[in-house]
Computed example of a mutant assay.
Amino acid sequence: MYHIRVSEAERDRACAILREHYALGRLDEKELPTRLAAAQLAVTWGDLHALLADLPDIPGMSFFPPVQDPPQAPPFVPPPQAPPGHAWQPHPPFSAPPGPQPSWTGPPAGAAVPDPGRAYDGAVKVSLVLGLFTCGLTWLLAIAFAYMRQHARTQGPYGPLATQASKWIATVFAAAFGLVVVAIGLFGPDGKARDDGVPGHVVELSITSPDGHAVADEMSTWVGEDQSSGNGVPLPYRKVVQGVRSLDGLSVRARSGTNDQTDSPVVKCSITVDGRVVATSTSAGGSDHECHASYSD
């Protein structure tokens, strides 16, 4: 039994025996701490026996645990004897009642056997279809739902992954995730529609004047939501915007001089789309101070 591991109580019993030998004078002050430390670190009965092998037994302090007697078998009681003149009759063996006996041979031929994995068919199909619009992102969901479907089939119809609740949750989750990804792909995180890959128009807004030193006292341009304005802008002025998707609301306006000025220079406002002039406006000069060109398509 020297290979059997010892418990804390057995280590403490060995330490108590060592202290008793120290009290009897068999161990000195140097040996006792060394053996106590080794006893506390002992793993098997063999480790403890090596510490006590050169010491005699102490009456009443046994190193090995007491041996328990095996449990006694209950006394034999003979079976009761039959009364005089009677003999014990054994019970007759069980026999089935007469007639044909029913037996289970499985479901009837042609009967539909429920498929527990069918609960995930809808989620797999929805994820596969949405993957065509999400660059294959929802195909990862389709793989996960296919695994859940196979797991449900191996676990049986009452497996934890084959309930009606999980069926609807999986289907709704796949649809919601796919719609969110589609919306982000089409409109972007800011909710604005994307037209990536579609070439836009090149729009040029210009303000010119025959007078080489003319100045636009007031000017403003609009290209969709892009608006700019200024005061005292030297002419000629040109603004080029590339990648314009919508040509609605193009406008350029300029004013030279003041209302009471009668010798204002002539100014011309022009709008060019893809190299083609689509709108122009020219002030007459003098008391006519403003030009305004606009275009919508």
Rank of each mutant, 00 (worst) to 15 (best):
Y2R: 15
H3Y: 05
I4K: 09
R5H: 09
S7L: 07
R11S: 05
R11N: 07
A14G: 08
E20H: 08
H21P: 08
D28C: 04
D28E: 01
A37P: 05
Q40Y: 14
T44D: 15
H49M: 02
H49P: 01
H49S: 04
A53V: 14
P56N: 07
D57H: 12
I58P: 11
P59Y: 06
G60D: 09
P65C: 11
P66L: 14
P70Y: 09
P70M: 09
P71F: 03
A73M: 15
A73H: 11
P78H: 04
H86W: 09
H86L: 10
H91Q: 13
P93N: 10
Q101P: 01
Q101A: 10
S103P: 00
T105F: 13
T105C: 02
G106H: 07
G106A: 04
D115R: 02
R118S: 04
Y120I: 07
D121C: 04
A123N: 03
V124G: 02
K125H: 06
V129L: 15
V129K: 00
L132K: 02
F133T: 08
L140Y: 13
I143C: 13
I143A: 14
R149M: 13
R149F: 06
Q150V: 05
A152L: 10
A152Y: 09
A152N: 00
R153L: 07
P157I: 06
P157E: 14
P157D: 06
G159D: 05
T163I: 00
A170T: 05
A170Y: 02
F177G: 11
F177P: 00
V181E: 14
A183T: 12
I184V: 14
P189H: 01
P189S: 12
P189M: 04
D190I: 13
P199M: 05
V203A: 01
E204F: 01
S206D: 04
H213C: 03
V215R: 13
V223H: 04
D226F: 15
S228L: 06
S228N: 13
P234T: 01
L235R: 11
R238C: 04
V241F: 02
V244H: 08
V244A: 00
V244F: 07
R245P: 00
D248A: 11
S251G: 06
S251W: 10
A254V: 15
G257I: 00
V266E: 15
V266R: 00
K268E: 12
K268L: 06
C269W: 03
I271P: 05
T272Y: 04
G275D: 03
S281Y: 02
T282K: 14
A284R: 11
G285K: 05
S294I: 08
Y295D: 03
